[in-house]
Design a protein around this nucleic acid. Structure first.
Length: 570
DNA sequence: GCCGTTTTCGGCCCGACTGTTTTCAGTCG
């Protein structure tokens, strides 16, 4: 997204990677990784802070603060440039090959001068690794396999694909397990996942492991032991099954949910209290005695913390908030009482107005907005007459739904100058207007910022639809000064959408957190084009939770009267 | 390199699996 803090964080992550390749002590590498994460999640722009301000960032001390000052002056970090000269970028790329880490990468570079994945792929069949210490036949085979995986699979799975697969596996294994659930980044509601972690309890892991390997979509067993089995599935997605004794459920679930950074923090807290935390429980260091392990709540409580929702476990301030007793009461799916962005077959939806409204009512919505596309998206062939006719149909339908208020709206197109489809007089006839970027995605930052700010300042625009217009894995976010956009939304009381389509999830979680600091409100919308799309709302809720949103932040958890008052005030 | 209810030095999260150097290092999560 090109935020300055992300750029600086990426430089320090690269610095850490290069240090680890040079064999620098692990704690030093970790110090840079921690600093990179802290900088990425820091609310203030680190390129505008002085030394004193920089030192306030957690895990940023004298040395790293000075490197940031160097970046402010020169646009780079001299020590990083020096490392880049020593270690070609291709050597760092070698560590992206599964099973090949920094140590092996450095041996390959120093002994054989290999500095790219391509060179390594050619060197192995040519026998150039023969006799190289630490590289036996099996290791060569694993590296070649890893290169294949890197080239072909590579991509992360979208959350809906991964969730459906994980739920299917849990359903298959549950009859054989005491307890069974998915953990890992999927439980934390990351928007994409690199693998799936399944956790189960059993006294004897044998039958579970056997059933797991026998699942029809398993194509390859990567590794298998008594407590852990890893497989690859038809879609290239890796799935790990961990089996622990029943009494260790809570500690194991906490451990396998991660993130790694969050776990490091909780273990450090344990160490300071004379305790040792592992997936088997919280133990006394002195006596080795088990203290707690049955539930996550027990583990956190014994560390002096409230239970922390998985969506927050990224070491991005949740530990500190928990210690202060300031964890947010996160918005939940059950809090939603309406949907403010949906389509019908009048434009590109695939279900009729009647069917969409019936499905919405069946979900128990208190209000529901129909927002078909406006005419400037010309392929939708919208006209004033069609839109007014739909409004009549909506009003007529209202009588059948005494418990659900029907709102007639539209999804406007923000043109390159920030104008929308209709003049103010026509827009005033809608109950609600969403406005979205659907074209000209590549405008430069200045033009895009001006464009979006102008649109959100339009008094008839209530919601900025899928604000970044990204398509995960296919199209990058548009480039805009998001702080300027969020400030404009806060001023004009324009609501930011969190679009539930699994390849959008837009606004993304990190930008949600930034926007919230500006005092902006949000709408969790399905953008449904068919009744089945309402099921995607769970993923938008997960994204909102990762953005630390409470029900008060989300306008479609509010009663209709409060929502109407907010829309009209804007 | 960072940090401090063991506070300016001496620590820094924990365990499983794999392959190889056969008693342990590297990688991964």
């Amino acid at each position: 997204m090109g935020r300055p803090n992300d750029d600086v964080a990426a430089l320090f992550q690269e610095f850490a990677d290069l240090l680890s390749i040079t064999g620098e002590a692990a704690y030093k590498v970790r110090a840079y990784e921690k600093a990179a994460r802290a900088i990425g999640g820091y609310p203030e722009d680190v390129t505008r802070l002085d030394l004193k301000g920089l030192r306030k960032i957690p895990n940023v001390g004298e040395a790293i603060a000075k490197k940031i000052l160097d970046y402010q002056e020169t646009g780079t970090i001299r020590q990083l440039e020096a490392l880049r000269e020593r270690i070609p970028a291709g050597v760092r790329a070698l560590t992206e090959i599964p099973t090949l880490g920094p140590k092996k990468a450095m041996v390959l570079y120093e002994e054989l001068g290999i500095s790219s994945v391509e060179q390594l792929a050619e060197a192995i069949p040519a026998g150039r690794l023969n006799g190289l210490k630490g590289f036996g036949a099996k290791t060569e085979e694993n590296i070649l396999h890893g290169i294949e995986l890197l080239r072909h699979a590579g991509e992360r799975a979208l959350i809906d694909v991964a969730t459906e697969l994980a739920e299917e596996i849990v359903a298959e294994l549950s009859p054989l397990a005491g307890r069974c659930a998915y953990a890992g980044s999927l439980r934390r509601c990351r928007e994409t996942v690199g693998d799936i972690d399944i956790l189960a309890t059993a006294e004897d892991s044998g039958p579970l492991m056997a059933a797991f390997i026998a699942l029809p979509f398993v194509t390859e067993v990567i590794g298998s032991g008594e407590t852990k089995t890893s497989v690859r599935t038809v879609k290239g997605l890796q799935v790990d099954l961990r089996v622990v004794p029943p009494e260790a459920w809570g500690a194991a679930l906490q451990y396998f949910t991660g993130s790694k950074a969050h776990n490091v923090r909780t273990r450090e807290i344990a160490v300071r209290a004379g305790l040792k935390l592992s997936e088997y429980g919280l133990f006394s260091v002195e006596t080795g005695e088990l203290i707690v392990s049955a539930t996550e709540e027990d583990v956190y409580a014994r560390l002096g913390l409230p239970w922390i929702p998985p969506q927050l476990r990224e070491d991005e301030g949740e530990i500190e908030a928990a210690l202060r007793g300031e964890l947010p009461r996160l918005v939940e799916l059950a809090d939603l009482c309406g949907d403010l962005h949906t389509h019908t077959d009048l434009t590109d939806g695939v279900a009729s107005l009647e069917d969409m409204v019936a499905a919405a009512a069946a979900r128990g919505n208190a209000y529901y907005a129909i927002t078909d596309h406006a005419p400037n998206l010309s392929m939708q062939r919208m006209t004033d007459e069609k839109m007014l006719a739909q409004r009549e149909a909506v009003r007529a339908l209202q009588g059948r739904y005494p418990d659900m208020a029907l709102l007639h709206g539209t999804e406007l197109n923000i043109d390159p100058d920030g104008e929308v489809d209709w003049p103010a007089e026509f827009l005033a006839g809608f109950d609600i207007c969403v406005a979205s970027v659907h074209s000209h995605f590549t405008q430069d930052r200045e033009a895009m910022t001006r464009r979006i700010v102008r649109a959100v300042e339009n008094p008839h625009v209530h919601i900025l639809g899928h604000p970044t217009a990204r398509s995960i894995g296919r199209r990058a976010s548009v480039d805009a000064d998001w702080d300027a956009v969020f400030a404009a939304c806060a001023r004009s009381r324009t609501i930011l959408e969190i679009d539930a389509f699994p390849d959008r999830l837009d606004l993304p979680a990190d930008l949600i957190r930034h926007a919230r600091r500006h005092g902006v409100k949000f709408a969790i919308d399905s953008d449904a084009h068919a009744p089945g799309h309402f099921d995607n709302l769970r993923y938008a809720v997960g994204t909102a939770q990762r953005g630390w949103l409470t029900p008060d932040d989300v306008v479609n958890t509010w009663p209709l009267e409060r929502l109407r008052a907010y829309l009209n005030a804007g």
